[in-house]
Every structure is written in structure tokens, then in C-alpha cells.
Write a protein that binds this DNA or RNA. Structure first.
Lengths: 199, 199
DNA sequence: ATTCTTACATACGCGGCGTATGTCAATAGG
DNA sequence: CCTATTGACATACGCCGCGTATGTAAGAAT
């Protein structure tokens, strides 16, 4: 019980640091964020950061893990709203693009993350939200809806497409209008994966 | 004539710095590359760098412009080998993916570039090799081969797909085998853009 | 021939990161 | 209940790297 109190405090410390880091990284980017500043904002010092995360990269990794988990939840929710598997996949993909429009996600997950930590598929948690896309796709292949392509390859392609499109949308003058165009083009592209109806 | 000599020297200086920067950025990444080191390797000092490029970011921009131009040439060459426009587009896209496998291009153009300078479409030269994809695509739409989607949106999606796939391939154990899978999946995806044959 | 400008080199200061060390509270053992 | 030990952080130090301000020599302008 007393032991639990201690563990609880540690978790709070970690949570505070991750929270502060998310804001700092999102606002200024990873490179421009000072560890002194963000720890101070959390009411702590760099000592806590090095103890808990081993360094600046470790903190970024922790932030990414947290955000990735959140994104996973949102993608699942989007998929489960749809009537069938294929439409679920579309909704899931669109949800991903919408999330990729959020500055925090874009900056941390899509720009700084890969640049600092390398390819997302090599991350410790294996990028859960990419895995979800892959598994959804594999299900569609198994049920015969989608051509028998390599699920991971296709998932990668679609994820990358969505990611890049989101970068573009975010920088556009009228994000919402551009978003509609992208969704339409994305649907066309994705339909290339469907088994041809005449087949 | 004497004036030309002077301009020539300046060009050589800039070329030397860009060359050294390309190697340094490719080897260690942008953040870990010391300007003192790379200028010294070029037989110069940071003074020359700040004078010619305004700073570290300016140098990165110059490096990217140069590489982008080179990529453009290679994409054109790939396209012109093909028999028809659609196949040309495929070859062009595959060429892009192959280039994206090269560590130098991957590190500088695809990882550090966007992270440091922001969205590629906002870069000064407007990312020439993306424009090429877009124009090729627009041609295919005009001739009726491709569905009337937004060319820029589709180009963005395909570029992003190729980019992300390349990141994955490069980190894979057997890059070549994975590359084949990706190309196959990419073809399927891209065919989603074709007008349906029954139409 | 002189002034002015260009194209760099040199010098300086500040901020940021990592590490080594210190401190205090909490657990464990007798 | 008292002490030894570990854990969770804070403090202190040094180095490196960037940007800027200043210096300098060679070419261009008049």
C-alpha cells in the first residue's frame, strides 16, 4: 500500500513530463524544445527526465507511444461505425488522415518521430496504428474482398499516402476543401485493391 | 572575364560546401552534423557557410534543391523509356521508389528535409519531382486514361505511398524481396485510378 | 589610385545536452 | 525501532555547437 503510493508518484511524474513534452514538441518541434524548459514547466528538472526516460530521445519515444495508443483507439472507433469491412477500412483510413491534420500528431508522429527515431516500423511498440491498418487489410484479403496483395506492403503504401496528403492539406489555404479532394482520390486509389467486379 | 573568374570561384565554394554537406547529412543526419566539421572538410570555415547560405537550414535547402533536380532528371529518363503514357507513369513512380531506397536521398530528402523545413510543397523550388508526377498524371487524365480526380491530390498520395514504402524497404532484412512486393501492391493501387475498362 | 564592396576568416557569447555527483525519503532487514 | 540500502529526483559541471559581430584581404567601381 505504501509501496503503491510510491509507484503512483512515479507514474504521475512520468505523466507530467510526457504531457509537458507533448506540448513543447508540438509547439516548437523536437529540436527546438529545451529540456530545461519543458521539465521546469512540469515542476521538475532534467534529473527526473534522465532518470525516467534516459534522455531526450527516450522522452520522445514515450510521447510517441502514448499518442500512438490514442490514435489506435480512434481508428478502431471509426472502423466499427461502418456497415461492412471494406467501408470500415475506408473510415479507418479517413480517420487516420483527419488525425494527421492535427498539428500535434503531424509534428510529433509524422515529422520529428521518423527523423529522430528512424523508420516507424522499427519502433519498440511497432507502430500500433500501422498494424491495425495491416490487420484490417489482411481480413479483407482473407474474405476475398481485396486482391491477394501483400497486406503489409499495401498498408504501408496507404498509410504513407494518407500521411503525405495530410502534410499537404495542413499547409493549404483551405484545408477542408483540399481534404475533400484527397478523400476522393484516396477512394479511387484504394479501390484499385478491390477484386475487379467482373472477376 | 575577371569578373567571371570571381563568380566561378564563388560557385566552386558553394559546390564544395554542398558536397560536404550532402555527405555529412547523409552519414550522420542533419542534427548531428557539425557545421565546423563539414566546412573544415571542404577546406573552409563557417564564415563561408553563413555568407553563402545564411545558416544551417539554408545549406540544407541548397542540398535539397540540388538533389531534387537530380531526381527529376532520373524520373524523366525512366518515364521516357516506356511505350505509353500509363506505363511511363508507372516507371516514373518505380524510379522514385528506387531512389527513395538510397540512404542519402532517404535521410536528407525524406526524413530531415520535411522535419526541418516543413512540408515539401512549400519549399522554394516547389519540389520539382512532385510536380513532375503531378503533370504526368494530369496528362493521363486529359487523355482519358485516368479518372478525373484531382491530379495534385493523387500525385501527393502516390508520392507519399512510395516514400513511406521506401522507408520500410530500406529497414527490411531483404530489401529487394520486399521491394518486389511493394511494386506489385503499388501497381494495384495505381490501377484504381484507371478508368474502368467496361466504361 | 581611391574608395567600396564582396567573400570569406576569426573571435566571442550563449544555450543546450549529457554526465557525474549530491540529497532526501522510502523500503528492507534484524 | 533503528540502521543500511536503494530509489527518485535535484544540483553542478564541462563541452560542444550554433549564431553573430567583427576583422581582413582581394577584387570591382569611379
Amino acid at each position: 500500500m505504501a509501496a503503491k503510493r510510491r509507484a503512483q508518484m512515479v507514474e504521475e511524474t512520468r505523466a507530467k513530463l510526457i504531457q509537458a513534452a507533448r506540448r513543447a514538441f508540438a509547439a516548437k518541434g523536437y529540436a527546438a524544445s529545451s529540456m530545461d524548459d519543458l521539465t521546469a514547466e512540469a515542476g521538475l528538472t532534467r534529473g527526473a527526465l534522465y532518470h525516467n526516460f534516459g534522455g531526450k530521445k527516450g522522452l520522445l519515444q514515450a510521447v510517441i507511444d502514448q499518442m500512438d495508443a490514442e490514435m489506435l483507439v480512434r481508428m478502431r472507433a471509426a472502423r466499427e461505425k461502418a456497415d461492412n469491412a471494406w467501408l470500415g477500412f475506408m473510415e479507418e483510413s479517413i480517420a487516420y488522415m483527419e488525425m494527421a491534420l492535427e498539428p500535434e500528431i503531424q509534428r510529433i508522429m509524422l515529422l520529428d518521430g521518423p527523423a529522430v527515431l528512424g523508420d516507424p516500423s522499427q519502433w519498440p511498440n511497432q507502430n500500433a496504428c500501422l498494424r491495425t491498418t495491416m490487420e484490417t487489410l489482411q481480413g479483407l484479403i482473407d474474405e476475398g474482398t481485396v486482391r491477394p496483395v501483400d497486406a503489409e506492403a499495401a498498408a504501408r503504401l496507404l498509410n504513407g499516402a494518407a500521411l503525405n496528403a495530410a502534410l499537404w492539406i495542413a499547409a493549404a489555404d483551405e484545408p477542408r476543401a483540399v481534404f475533400e479532394k484527397v478523400v476522393e482520390a484516396f477512394r479511387s486509389l484504394a479501390e484499385g485493391l478491390l477484386r475487379s467486379e467482373s472477376g
